[in-house]
């Protein structure tokens, strides 16, 4: 049994003109201890996916259908109490900006201890000892002092380390990290990402890593899922996605990487912008920007087809299979 199995998950946002779909029936699986990357441009629905898994969508967002089976239980059917018992305990989350994630008026110790005590019957002292051990594991210098400090006394990198330690406090099965290094100084981004990878590996924790950075994805994850306009348009082994992308959108993403462009030339960005929720095109949502668009693409949404271990949602992928690899190859 896989750790996580998402089936036909649909998320909508209520608005004055009716509900708009932000996720259009997405399905994917995650094995125990597996690390999955979610990539895609801004607004693709990556964060919404992460929050939906935690049943933590904020209004006006809501889950409109589908299943999220986590260790065999459907998160969408859980009572508020069951959801609370799961959050932070079996499934933990790491947010994007450590400067605003921690409560400014509570000490690090208070915030770690409360998490432990929310899920286990521990005394303050016992909880504090566990917190101390976890802080040591993420290489925080003088952890004893840290526990009595307030967030504003610590740097962004230190705070994100602490947040990683907090995510590990109750030995979760899955960690969802939504752009955990984007808000940090570039010089420490790699350190934090490496720490996250090390912690997931040594603790056998599954990871869903949401990011814009394909470099990070290839460094950390085993499988990658590419999202566009609330759909998964390509999934597969990270290596295949990076080296042999099938979907024109994924190819566009890879081609837009700075490494793909000689110094001094402009980056090869995908022309146009992702459609907004209220102005979703018919058929394939990418057809408005796609160089290979056909009439079929404008009419019907493509089914998923399998190429080896890669799944792709594109009408033209068979033709592209024949024509394109040479063009894309670096």
């Amino acid at each position: 049994m896989s750790l996580l199995s998402v089936r036909d998950l649909t998320v909508k946002f209520a608005s004055r003109d009716g509900a708009m779909a932000a996720l259009n029936g997405i399905s994917f699986d995650l094995a125990r201890g597996e690390r999955l990357g979610i990539v895609g441009e801004s607004g693709a629905g990556k964060s919404i996916t992460g929050f939906a898994l935690m049943n933590l969508l904020s209004k006006p967002g809501f889950i409109d259908g589908g299943e999220i089976l986590f260790e065999g239980e459907d998160v969408t059917q859980m009572s508020p109490k069951q959801v609370r018992d799961m959050r932070g305990n079996r499934m933990a989350m790491i947010f994007q900006d450590p400067m605003v994630t921690l409560n400014p008026v509570l000490t690090i110790g208070q915030q770690m201890v409360e998490t432990l005590r929310a899920h286990r019957n521990l005394s303050f002292e016992e909880a504090r000892q566990i917190a101390l051990v976890k802080l040591k594991e993420v290489y925080i210098p003088s952890p004893d002092e840290r526990l009595d400090q307030y967030p504003h006394e610590l740097s962004g990198g230190m705070r994100q380390r602490i947040i990683i330690a907090m995510a590990l406090l109750l030995d979760p099965k899955l960690i969802i990290a939504d752009e955990p290094t984007t808000a940090l100084d570039v010089t420490i981004q790699a350190d934090i990402m490496e720490l996250l990878l090390e912690m997931c590996q040594s603790n056998q924790v599954g990871l869903i890593l949401i990011t814009h950075d394909l470099g990070v994805v290839s460094q950390v994850t085993e499988r990658t899922m590419v999202m566009y306009a609330g759909r998964i348009i390509e999934t597969g082994a990270t290596r295949s996605i990076i080296n042999d992308p099938q979907h024109p959108y994924t190819q566009g993403l890879i081609n837009a990487l700075p490494q793909q462009t000689p110094p001094g030339q402009r980056l090869k960005q995908i022309p146009g912008a992702m459609p907004t929720l209220s102005a979703m095109p018919t058929g394939c949502p990418f057809h408005t920007r796609c160089a290979h668009v056909t009439d079929e693409c404008k009419r019907t949404a493509p089914e998923v087809s399998q190429f080896g271990d890669t799944a792709v949602a594109c009408h033209e992928v068979h033709r592209l299979q024949r024509d394109l690899p040479k063009e894309v190859a670096q």
Binding site: R87, G88, F95
Partner: peptide, 11 residues
């Protein structure tokens, strides 16, 4: 954000 984070911790 810190309130959402507290929710994400199951508080």
């Amino acid at each position: 954000e810190y309130i959402r984070y507290a929710q994400a911790k199951g508080i």
